[in-house]
Design a protein around this nucleic acid. Structure first.
Lengths: 230, 230
DNA sequence: TACTATTGACTGACTGGTTGGTCAATAAGG
DNA sequence: CCTTATTGACCAACCAGTCAGTCAATAGTA
């Protein structure tokens, strides 16, 4: 434990918080908030317990910081998705879910994040609210915009998915949870699953003859209308 | 603690285990396994900690018993669903999901059960495996049978939902989780949500002209994408 | 009916181990 | 030297699990 101290001591101050957060994420996601021992977090980060308290005031704040750290990249993607759409609505969904599957389902840390938020949500209402406000809410709203856009341009029919975009997102959540819980023994073939998801989506959203014409102009094949609202 | 001893002391032996399980469910679901104190379980059940150990060997077994107790009714429904189907496949799905929404989404205890299994699954692999073996696995398989039945009778097209019935179930899970986490501040309108779910399902499963014939004889026409079983 | 003996569900004080959090001492720059 | 990041021994609280003892309800006796 005393060997391999090549790092200059002063510079560690920069790196420590990140190292601690990384170790904390691993420990928290393995054992949950209550059952995680700070001594284990410390030893995983290559330090001792006391040092954690130099950078974080207590266990709870460490936990919150850990979650926030992992939430950031997904939050950034959400902003991009909300930007004004162009091209086929189904293509936008395809691209979006490609990112989401990569980020949340295939990446074990993404899955763990979801699991932790579900598991500990009850004890950290502020965290849950923040998650909703900054990730989930915008995500639902962005999907709703895409669906609206698809309806407006005559690509989609007037689907209930406009009211409940949750429906088109839910298979992602299912896959996350499934892989986390049963992945060891009963793993899903994620590539095929994702394609199946998108196929179902297309079939349930696309407009057909019997749906009649849709769109503000009344002409389905008109140019792409903008979705500037909100 | 000494007043109100109307109950005959001897007869309590019958009722105690059930009372303890009920109290334990409330406490475990509120705080999680690790953070739950047996003293709180006891006082909620109107007894003291020692009495718990008369009926359960330790905290872990109490937890397992609590979960198993709540899992039983759903397990029984699964067996019914697996019975040989008749009538419209979509009608069967409708009836099934009616039960499932009532049992898992609208009932707070049903939601809590799911949340607990997700939250503590990592620390109780045996429980997770049992849940998969007795509830989830059969449920997926039963849904698959219904989809297959629908395809065979020409009601559904050759859908990828045959390989991944998870897709048609996933909105239930989403609703459970959503209500548990955000239900306080951002509740879903469950009646509308369920109808939206079923509408989407119907649209994505039903056979259309361009899918070609796929009658009870089981001969899919050329060109129709066949989903190889398993 | 009255009195006593026995039972066993229940209690609650106790223990042994664990862990969040503290802080004086230490060691590594500069 | 002085500064400061880090340590690790330490404390106090907490809690799962134990067990000797209590007492209400019954069974037995006369």
């Amino acid at each position: 434990m005393e060997a391999a101290r090549a790092e200059p001591r002063r510079r560690r101050k920069q790196a420590r918080p990140g190292e601690i957060l990384e170790a904390a994420f691993a420990e928290f996601s393995a054992a949950g908030f209550a059952a995680t021992r700070l001594e284990d977090v410390a030893s995983r980060a290559g330090i001792t317990k006391g040092t954690i308290y130099v950078y974080f005031p207590n266990k709870e704040e460490l936990f919150l910081a850990t979650i926030k750290e992992r939430m950031r990249p997904t939050m950034e993607h959400m902003e991009a998705l909300t930007a004004s759409p162009e091209g086929g609505a189904m293509d936008i969904l395809r691209a979006h879910f490609h990112f989401v599957y990569g980020r949340m389902v295939e990446d074990p840390q993404g899955r763990e994040l979801l699991r932790m938020l579900v598991a500990e949500g009850g004890r950290f209402p502020a965290l849950t609210e923040r998650w909703h406000a900054e990730v989930i809410g915008p995500s639902v709203e962005a999907l709703r915009q895409v669906v609206r856009y698809g309806i407006a341009r005559g690509e989609f029919h007037a689907t209930a998915a406009e009211e409940f975009p949750h429906l088109i997102f839910s298979p992602v959540m299912m896959a996350c949870t499934w892989q986390t819980l049963f992945g060891e023994a009963h793993a899903l073939d994620l590539a095929r699953y994702r394609e199946a998801h998108l196929d179902m989506l297309q079939r349930s959203l696309e407009r057909r003859q019997e749906d009649g014409a849709a769109g503000p102009s009344g002409q389905p094949s008109a140019g792409s209308p903008s979705v500037s609202s909100m």
